Amino acid sequence: MIDIIMYIVLVIYIVFILQLIFGFGKVKTFVRTEEKPTTKFSIIVPFRNEEKNLQKLLKSISNLNYPKELFELIMVDDFSKDNSEKVYTKWRMENGLIETTLLENLRLSNSPKKDAISRAIPILKHEWIVTTDADCTVNKNWLLTLDNFIQKNNAEMVVGAVVYKTKNNWFHHFQQLDLLSLQGTTIGSFGIRKPFICNGANFAYTKKLFNEIGGFGGNNKIASGDDVFLLQKAIKNHSDKVHYLKNIDTIVTTKPENDLYKLFMQRVRWASKTSSYSGIYSKILAVVVLLMNVSLVLGFGMRVLDTSAALSVTIKWETLVIVFLIKYAIDYILLFKSNVYLRNGKFLLPIASSLIYPIFCSSVGIYSLFGSFSWKGRKFNK
């Protein structure tokens, strides 16, 4: 009976992943042309205790291949306790041609990042808002390509990709594979016209659209989701104006975590918003993915206990092996496609990570339903 249930879950899982694989191919790579830049951008960067990372982000913004008069930078300090402000001030003195403003966050909700963005929006001088994170670096043609895309499309919200800059260790590669799966899901969902996920580290939208859909209203009690919930509200009201920009010059690079606890808390923070998704498709997909991974973990546990005669319920080793291998194969196709785009097809053979991932995914998914999480030195309840 358990074997049959696992096969049923696997079949449903395959259907969803094949949809995403098909959708990934439907999103075509955007080719930038030589139009004169016209779009004016306001870049918003919320930060908290980021003195180790800010310098790299700010340097990448200094190197943007975009007219200085066409963008401004708004930094929002979320009550940092380190030297982040000094790093920014030093950079500001060395880059006088870039219009920039430093604000202090104003906490009005349970979401510091939403508060930070909301704090900045009323003072913005330009129509297009672009958000990224303090631990990121941006490509020199980031805004140039985004402007070109906006000129050629009826867009008021544009989603872009994020990838890790990893060191040569397994823990970083494990995170990269996890992020590749999320990015593949993002692109695939746009391809089948059911987008529901994005990353605020590479996200752009107009003030007009932000105000029309009520900004972050309705989900301020949720600590995370400044990106996903805004996307879902835009899809519900103006789906024709929401686009995915697939071009290597717009990929934003960020840093992986260096210890397991921080990684677990980060993923719990991301997963905690899943139950508040507005679309049926996204909720079903989340449940199917969780069930697939939990079934593998429970199946393995039952098999081990049954071998020791501690449990009467049986499941065949053959079933576990077959289900895992088929899941691995279907996952690999989506990961491979993401890897070709995001990492230029660098070597990818995630056998060890795929063995551990069901345990990690199950732990994060189940814990996020009930547990609290910490983020930037603060604790947030479910």
Rank of each mutant, 00 (worst) to 15 (best):
V76R: 06
D133R: 08
L144G: 02
S111H: 10
E85M: 04
M75C: 01
T166N: 08
D82N: 01
L106H: 09
N110D: 03
P67V: 00
C136P: 03
F79V: 02
F190C: 06
D115T: 12
F79L: 09
N63T: 15
N139T: 13
A120Q: 01
S181T: 00
N110V: 08
S189N: 08
T145D: 05
L182V: 11
H126E: 04
I129D: 00
I74K: 00
D178L: 11
K165R: 12
E156N: 07
D115P: 05
I129Q: 00
E72S: 14
F71C: 02
A116N: 04
L182G: 03
K86A: 09
E156G: 05
T101S: 10
P67W: 13
I121V: 15
A155G: 12
A161M: 13
I150V: 04
K140T: 15
N148Y: 07
Q183E: 06
S80T: 00
T185V: 13
K81E: 14
T132D: 02
K81T: 15
K81G: 15
N169S: 09
N63V: 15
K90A: 15
E99T: 14
H126T: 05
A155S: 14
T132Y: 08
T100Y: 09
L180D: 01
I129W: 03
N65H: 14
T137F: 13
G191L: 00
G188T: 04
T166S: 10
D133A: 12
K125D: 06
F79H: 10
L102K: 05
V159P: 02
E104H: 15
I117A: 00
D147W: 07
D78E: 07
A161F: 10
L103H: 11
T132W: 08
G96P: 09
V162C: 12
D135M: 02
V87M: 03
V158N: 04
E94F: 06
E85Y: 03
G184V: 06
T145N: 07
Q151I: 05
A161G: 10
A134E: 00
F71A: 06
S118F: 12
Y164S: 04
N65T: 06
I121Q: 01
L177G: 11
P112H: 13
F171Q: 02
N139R: 00
L64C: 04
Q176P: 02
T131Q: 00
S189C: 11
D133I: 08
K81C: 13
D115E: 11
D135I: 11
P112T: 12
V138A: 03
S118L: 10
L97Y: 14
G160S: 10
K125I: 14
E127Q: 10
N63Q: 12
L180Y: 03
L124M: 05
L102W: 08
I129Y: 06
Q175K: 07
T101L: 06
F174P: 03
P67K: 14
N95L: 13
A161K: 13
D82Q: 08
S109A: 00
L70D: 06
E127L: 09
S118C: 00
L180W: 06
K114R: 13
L97Q: 14
L108M: 14
W142L: 05
T89G: 01
S189Y: 07
V163W: 03
D147Q: 01
L97I: 15
K113F: 01
D78S: 11
N153Q: 10
T137S: 08
K167L: 11
L144Y: 14
F171T: 03
N63I: 15
N168C: 09
N63H: 15
F71M: 04
E69F: 12
K86T: 05
D115H: 11
I74D: 00
